[in-house]
Design a protein around this nucleic acid. Structure first.
Lengths: 181, 181
DNA sequence: AGAATAATCGGAGCAGTGCTCCGAATATAT
DNA sequence: ATATATTCGGAGCACTGCTCCGATTATTCT
C-alpha cells in the first residue's frame, strides 16, 4: 500500500467514525468523503461497499466479543458466561446506530463484508448457549440463530430513542426467558 | 371532496398497497404516483407525509386490534387474552414490511400521523397487561411501553428474511418471559 | 345554457443520495 | 531524471423526497 493511500485510508476511518456517530450507519458517504477532504472515488476504492466500511469500523469490537466468549467459556459458570456475554453483545451492537438491520441481512448474504464477523459471533454465542443447555440452565428449544435474533432485536431497540432507556430492563426479561427451563 | 379527488384518493390507496407490498414501507412515492397514473403533487396533497399514507393503509388493522383487545378483555381469561393479543399484534404489524421503525419513532412524535394509532394500541396492550398482573400471572416489573417495545422488536424480526421463520417460536419465548412471575 | 370560481391536477425544479468511470496527478522504482 | 504503476478526485447517471405554481376541470350561480 502506497504511503498516501494509507494516510487517506486511516483518515477516512476516523472521519467515518465521527460522521456515523452523528448520523447513524446510513450516513451520507459523500459527506464522509467531503469531511475527510478526499474525493468520492477514493472512499469507494478503499471501501467498495458501505458494509466494508462498517466492518472496518467494527472489526475490533467483533474480535473482542468473540475473544470474550472464549474467555468466559473457560473462566465462568455457564449461566454467568451466557448472561454477561449477552449484555456485552447488545452493548457492542449498539456501538454504531442503525447497524443491526445490516447485520441481520449480512447473516444470509455471503457476499456481504459483514458476513464473516456475524457468522463467527453467532457461533460464539451458540457455544455458550449449548454449554448452559447441557448444564440444564437454559431452554433447550433455542439455537444460535434464535439467540442472535434476540440480541439483534434488543440492539435494535437500543437504537431507537423511544425504547433505548428500556433496553437494559428488557435484556433482563429476555435473559430470564432464555435461562428458565 | 370533489368527485375526481375521491377517485384519485381511492386509486392511490389501492396502488400504494400493492407497491408497498412489493418494496416495503420506504417504497418510492414517485413510483406509487406513476403506477396510479397520477401526478406527484396529487399524491402529496392527499397524503402530505409518508406516515399519513401508511396510517391510511393501516387504519383498519389498527382499529381491529384495539377492538380485539376490548373483546378479549371481556371474554377471555387475562392470560389467554394477553397471549392471543400479542400474537395478533405482531401479525398486524408484520402486515406492512418495514413499518416498525416508523411506529416506534411515531410513538414519541405527536406530529406523526401514526402517533394516535400507536398510543391507543399501547394503551390497549397496557390494559390487558395490567389485568394479567393483578391476577398474578404476569411479571409486575413491566409496563405498556415495555410490551409495545417487545411487540415491535418481534415484528421487526418478522420483516427480516433471516429471522422471519423464527418469529413464531420467539414470540412463545417472549410470552413465557412476560407471563412467568 | 353559459360564465365565474374554487378546487384539483400534474410535473418541472431543487437539493440531496449511491455508485461508476476515467483522465489527471503523484509516489515509487529504475 | 525518467518511466510506470497506483492513487486521486469529481463529473455524470439515475434515482430519491418534497415544494411550488400555472393549467385544467368540476361545481355552482345567474
Amino acid at each position: 500500500m502506497r504511503a498516501d493511500a494509507k494516510k487517506n485510508f486511516d483518515h477516512l476511518l476516523t472521519t467515518a467514525r465521527d460522521v456515523i456517530a452523528e448520523h447513524g450507519a446510513d450516513a451520507s458517504l459523500r459527506d464522509v468523503a467531503r469531511r475527510a477532504d478526499v474525493g468520492l472515488g477514493t472512499l469507494y476504492r478503499h471501501f467498495p461497499t458501505r458494509e466494508a466500511l462498517l466492518d472496518a469500523l467494527l472489526r475490533s469490537t467483533f474480535d473482542e466479543l468473540t475473544a470474550t466468549a472464549d474467555e468466559l467459556e473457560k473462566t465462568s459458570s455457564p449461566t454467568d458466561a451466557l448472561t454477561t456475554w449477552l449484555r456485552d453483545c447488545v452493548a457492542g451492537a449498539t456501538q454504531i446506530r442503525g447497524i443491526t438491520p445490516l447485520m441481520m441481512t449480512a447473516m444470509e448474504d455471503p457476499e456481504s463484508a459483514l458476513h464473516a464477523s456475524c457468522v463467527t459471533m453467532r457461533a460464539a454465542g451458540a457455544r455458550l448457549l449449548a454449554r448452559a443447555q447441557e448444564e440444564g440452565s437454559a431452554r433447550k428449544d433455542l439455537d444460535g440463530g434464535d439467540l442472535f435474533a434476540l440480541v439483534g432485536a434488543l440492539a435494535w431497540l437500543g437504537d431507537l430513542p423511544a425504547t433505548a432507556p428500556r433496553v437494559g430492563h428488557l435484556l433482563e426479561v429476555v435473559t430470564s426467558a432464555v435461562l428458565v427451563g
